[in-house]
Design a protein around this nucleic acid. Structure first.
Lengths: 206, 206
DNA sequence: TTCTGTGAACCGCTTCACAGCG
DNA sequence: CGCTGTGAAGCGGTTCACAGAA
C-alpha cells in the first residue's frame, strides 16, 4: 500500500465511512454504491469515489462496493486490523465511565492499564482494572510498549501527564482535558472538547 | 451585527480562539497580536485577522488585540454572552460524569434536568439533580423552553430520544452515542465520538 | 445500463502583500 | 515602525463529466 501525500481531511473521513458501513451492514446489505454511502452522511458520490481511489480500486463497476471487503480495506488503511493496547490516565468520573464502557474494546482499543495519582483510588477496581499509582506509569507503559493513551485528569495536571507519556514512548494521545497539550512533532494529539462543540452550535441557534 | 455568509469553518475556529484567549489571559497578558494568537494553535497571522474581520474591527493597529475585549466580542458572536439551559438524557456512567463535571456551567451551559428511562435510577441525585423519568421529558423540556440537549443513552435508544427532543422544541443536540442521528434541517447535531478520533490517529502511527 | 475511477474544471479557503492608522 | 484590515493571488479540496468495465 503505497500512500504518498493523502490529504488529512480524507483520512479523517475514513473512520466515518467505516462507522456508516457498520450501520448499513446491520441492516443486511452486502453491497453499496458511492451515491448511497455518500447520502448517509451528506457527501457527494464523487467525493466518496475520489477518497477511496487514493488507496486502491475497491469497487465493482456496474454494482458498487462490497461492504465487508470495503470495511476490511479501510481497517487496514487505518491500521485497525489489529487490537491496540491503551493506557487510561485519570480514574475520576470520566475515567470510570470510559473504563467501564465496552465500546472501545469492541472497536479494537483495549484498555490495559488505569493510572491515578490519588492514593485513595489506587488498588480499586474500575472496569475490570486495578487502578495503579501514577509514579509507576512511565515504567509500566514503556515495558508494555503501549502506544496510545487517554488523559482524563484535571486540566492543571494534563501537561505534566502528557510529558510523562511522551517519555514513556506513547505516540498518540486522546486528551479529554480542555487545554492544548504541547508535545513533540511526531506525537499525535486529538482533544475531546464538548464545550467547543456546544459553542459551535449556539452560533446558529440565536 | 450583520453576518451574511460566513464559512462554517471560520465559526468552528471561534471557540478555539476563545479557549486560547482564556489560557493567555491567565498568564497575565492583556494584549495579543494576530501572530501570537495564531502560533498558539498553528494558524497563520493572516488567517486570524481574516477570520476576525468577518465580524468587525477588533484590533488596534500597531499594538494588537485587547484580550478581554476580543473575548467579549467572540462570546457575543457565538451567543454565549448568556447562560444556556441544557437537558441531559441518560444517567448512566457517562451521564453521571457529565452531570457532576463543573466545566459546563463555568462556560455558561447549565444542566437543568437529567432524564433516564431506568426506573431504578429515577429519583436518585446526580450532580445535584434528581433523575426524572423519560416519559415526562417532552413536556418538561417544552415547558422550560430548553433549546440544548445532550444524549448519553445507549446507541439503540438514541434516535428515539432525538425524535422526542425535536418534538420538545430542542434546537441543538450534543450526541455522545456512536450513531448518526436523523433530524430536521433546522436542528443542529454535533457528535462526540472518541473512537473516530482514535482511528484517525492510528493511521499515522503505523 | 449501471456505476466506478479519474483528469480537468471549478470553487472556496488560505496566504500574500500592502495601504493605512496609531 | 508595528500591526491591523483587506483586495487579490494562490492553492488545494470538491465537483463535474466521461471513458471504461461488469
Amino acid at each position: 500500500m503505497v500512500e504518498k501525500n493523502i490529504p488529512d481531511i480524507v483520512i479523517s473521513r475514513l473512520p466515518i465511512y467505516l462507522q456508516t458501513l457498520h450501520q448499513i451492514e446491520k441492516q443486511g446489505e452486502t453491497i453499496i454504491s458511492s451515491r448511497e454511502l455518500g447520502e448517509l452522511f451528506g457527501i457527494t458520490a464523487a467525493q466518496v469515489r475520489k477518497d477511496l481511489s487514493f488507496f486502491g480500486e475497491f469497487g465493482k463497476q456496474g454494482s458498487g462496493y462490497n461492504i465487508d471487503f470495503l470495511k476490511s480495506q479501510i481497517r487496514a488503511i487505518l491500521n485497525i486490523d489489529r487490537t491496540w493496547d491503551v493506557a487510561l490516565i485519570g480514574a475520576g468520573d470520566l475515567g470510570n465511565a470510559i473504563a467501564r464502557y465496552p465500546g472501545f474494546l469492541e472497536r479494537g482499543f483495549s484498555i490495559e492499564y488505569v493510572f491515578d495519582s490519588d492514593l485513595t483510588k489506587i488498588g480499586k477496581l474500575v472496569g475490570g482494572h486495578i487502578v495503579m499509582p501514577s509514579d509507576t506509569m512511565v515504567e509500566t507503559i514503556r515495558a508494555a510498549e503501549i502506544q496510545i493513551a487517554m488523559i482524563t485528569v484535571p486540566s492543571r495536571a494534563a501537561q505534566q501527564v502528557a510529558d510523562d507519556l511522551v517519555r514513556a514512548g506513547v505516540r498518540a494521545i486522546l486528551n479529554y482535558a480542555p487545554v492544548p497539550l504541547n508535545v513533540p512533532e511526531n506525537i499525535r494529539v486529538e482533544t475531546v472538547n464538548p464545550i467547543i462543540q456546544l459553542e459551535h452550535m449556539t452560533y446558529y441557534i440565536k
